[in-house]
Computed example of a mutant assay.
Amino acid sequence: MTSAASPITVAVVDDHPVFRLGMVALLETLRDVTVVAEAASAAEAAQLPTDGLDVVVMDLQLGDGSGVETTRDLLRRAPHLRVLVVTMHEDDESVVASIRAGAHGYLLKGATPDEVERAVRAVANGELILGARIAARATGHLTGSRSADRHPFPELTLREREVLDLLARGYDTPVISRRLVLSPKTVRNHVASILTKIGAPDRPAAIVLARERGLGHDGPA
């Protein structure tokens, strides 16, 4: 934890140079925040000097590795660090994996400058903070049956519900793959997980259940 009188020292880890430079430029405009290091890969992140470093802003997809594993490795080496994940991924698995790895914050890359500043200061102070969309979904999961009425199949992740909705619209694996920018293998893996979670023996049965719960009614575009 940093004291009120001490500047917050930050390192930015992101393999996309435009985003990384933009984040550095934003952070350097903030009062009492100093960017002391950058890394463009998991390998470079492993070499970050951690003495005197407070916060690491971490992407999840690094060119040579996972931001989740990089977070875990950094915190194993320097438990005092606070990691703020800033990523394009909002699926439940990524959020849970990041928090389990030790991250104190999770923002999407569409976050406003004010949200970034608030998150950096919060995690530096040892608080756990989630971006608005992530927090809203987490709250929805915690509200139980009332949330289930608004979000059918609460046992599914957001991505799995998207796949099931497209299945219920009558799309096959190649079309779902193109629409969600996923590999066919990933789509098939999602379908297998969906069938297990909702207790459907096969795709036709899953489609029937999905339509009964309100999914898939728009039909193929």
Rank of each mutant, 00 (worst) to 15 (best):
H89K: 13
E93Y: 14
D202K: 03
D92W: 07
Y106Q: 05
P17E: 09
P152K: 04
S177V: 06
P17H: 00
H89D: 10
I176C: 00
D165N: 15
D73S: 11
E28Q: 15
A119T: 13
S94I: 01
I8L: 00
S145F: 02
S98F: 08
V56W: 07
M23F: 05
D54I: 01
E212G: 11
G170Y: 08
H141R: 15
A103L: 01
L108W: 05
S98N: 02
A135K: 03
S6V: 07
V55T: 12
R121L: 06
L209P: 04
E115K: 14
F19T: 15
P154W: 03
T112V: 01
H141T: 07
S66Q: 13
P204Y: 03
V24T: 13
G102I: 06
M23T: 13
G170C: 00
E117H: 08
H141Q: 14
S6F: 00
L26I: 10
G102H: 08
L26A: 13
L107F: 07
L167T: 09
V12K: 02
D73F: 01
V68F: 05
R159L: 12
S183P: 06
K185A: 15
S3I: 06
A78K: 10
D15F: 02
E162D: 13
T139P: 00
R188A: 05
T2P: 05
T157G: 12
V120P: 05
V123D: 02
L74M: 10
S66I: 06
P49N: 07
H80S: 14
A45C: 08
E38F: 03
G131K: 03
V181R: 04
A221Y: 05
A138D: 00
F19W: 09
A200P: 06
D32M: 11
A5Y: 07
E90S: 14
R77Y: 05
G170I: 02
T50L: 00
M23G: 00
L62I: 03
A45H: 03
F153Q: 07
V13E: 06
V187S: 07
T87I: 01
A200V: 07
L74V: 08
A135D: 10
L209F: 00
V86W: 02
E162M: 05
V123I: 10
I134P: 09
V85M: 07
A135G: 09
I134G: 07
L209D: 06
S177E: 11
I194Q: 09
H141I: 12
V163A: 05
V187Y: 08
L156H: 11
G144Q: 08
V55I: 12
T70Q: 04
R159I: 00
G110R: 13
D73C: 02
G52E: 10
E28H: 02
D73L: 13
G22V: 08
H151A: 03
K185W: 00
V208I: 15
P152S: 04
M58Y: 04
A210S: 04
L158S: 12
P184W: 03
V55M: 14
V95I: 15
R150E: 07
A25E: 11
V13D: 01
R77K: 09
D92E: 15
V175L: 06
D59P: 13
R137A: 11
A103C: 03
T186R: 14
L30W: 09
L130C: 01
R178Y: 12
L30A: 11
P49F: 00
L195Y: 12
